[in-house]
Design a binder for these strands. Structure first.
Length: 111
RNA sequence: ACGGGUCGAUGAGACGGUCGCGUUGUUUCCGCAAGGAGACACCGAGGAACGUCCGGGCUCCAUAGAGCAGGGCGGUGGGUAACACCCACCCGGAGCAAUCCGCGAGAAAGUGCAACAGAAAGCAGACCGCCACAGGCUUCGGCUUGGGGUAAGGGUGAAACGGUGGUGUAAGAGACCACCAGCAGCCCGAGUGAUCGGGCUGGCUGGGUAAACCUCGCCCGGAGCAAGGUCAGACAGGGAGCGUUACGGGCUGCUCGCCCAGUUUCCGGGGAGACCGCUAGAGGUGUGCGGCAACGUACAUCGUAGAUAGAUGACCGUCGAUGAGGCCGCAGUUGAAAAACACAGUUGUCUCGGGACAGAACCCGGCGUACGGUCGGCCCGUUUGC
């Protein structure tokens, strides 16, 4: 899970990251990555639209993404804003698939 | 035992591990402070949290009273803060019954509407019929034409202007009579009442639809927690006072006066933020009492989510509510037997799958809808035994 300091909570920050950040596609999620000051903590936000499913399904997807986000913060504690947008197929895949896909996507953007 | 009806209870499946989140409290550290970080403890989604369809609390605005418009409700009595909800009863319909169903006011105030069939569907009407009279024809059985009478019989329909039987008649008809159904008025009895039971009289009968307009009775002000309030700071402006004997500038050389600067004070201000509202409330549980019940009441007792890009979890392992299938037996059935196994049950064992509907956002009371299963109470019918 993520602490409040590691989350994107302002609508302005969401807009900036989605508009100006680098976009990386994975099979079940879309990543928006923006570099920030190296002193600032890494922050992560989530976009799970109604096309993904009903409230229960969306909550499950959000929790899984938060859990993945926790790994990301541990690996890269500062200097990044990341927005993850879940795609409609995301509730159907297993936890390990989702995790490896997103981490691979980050790997590609870093390299 | 089988079948049926009804009322409930329960429902993130259990345990362990790794990694985590939110509220509150205690405490440690950092910081001038605001605040931040850590540790520990407690607590942390539902019966529908859902849909947002009704009703209320609460908040702000409006408001003398009454009415119009608009909307809602509609058997009776009760419950409630209130309701479109709940309880009991009444009426009508379905069912052998338990029980269920009715969006239950008014159709002789008016307007409108009604497919198909049928002669005719709303001040009724007359297709096939039936009937006497007048004319014509006649094989003397009847046939036919005319203007009339009639609605018993036929056929259509959800529905054809009371039903059955008789008197009557040319044929018929509430034309008349008896009984029955229904209507209106009056009376008696039961009930708080809807209504029910009974009697007398009358005219003999004047269909449906109000979830069509409409009529009657009763109820309803509007917007919503993004309500509403507090705080600090940034960014326009406006009003009022002071502006002096001494301290700024201008009209003006001086005084008064006026204007500006200054200062005090009040009002104001898009949007973003923090905090309050924010969870103790028509509260839950138990017992007694009142009531057929819904419910009320007294006492005792309990402390029970509060997020805000939105906490209450993610993953792994073991188990298994329960389902499907395989194998070996058992009783059972068939058969003289050996033997066989379509259906149903069951012990053991193995394999596979592995939990429905669904996530609080100010709070309650309802309604409606979704749902894998499990458990229970009561009642009715049929059959068998005592």
């Amino acid at each position: 899970m993520l602490k409040r300091a590691n989350r994107v909570v302002r609508a302005d920050d969401f807009r900036t990251t989605v508009r100006k950040g680098r976009r990386v596609g994975t099979p079940h999620a879309l990543l928006y990555i923006a570099r920030t000051d190296s002193g600032d903590p890494t922050r992560i936000g989530f976009i799970v639209a109604k096309t993904v499913g009903n409230a229960v399904t969306r909550n499950l997807v959000t929790r899984r993404l938060r859990s993945i986000g926790h790994d990301v913060v541990l690996a890269q504690p500062t200097g990044t804003d990341l927005i993850i947008r879940a795609l409609p197929g995301s509730p159907g895949v297993t936890w390990t698939t989702l995790q490896s896909e997103i981490l691979a996507g980050l790997e590609r953007s870093a390299g």
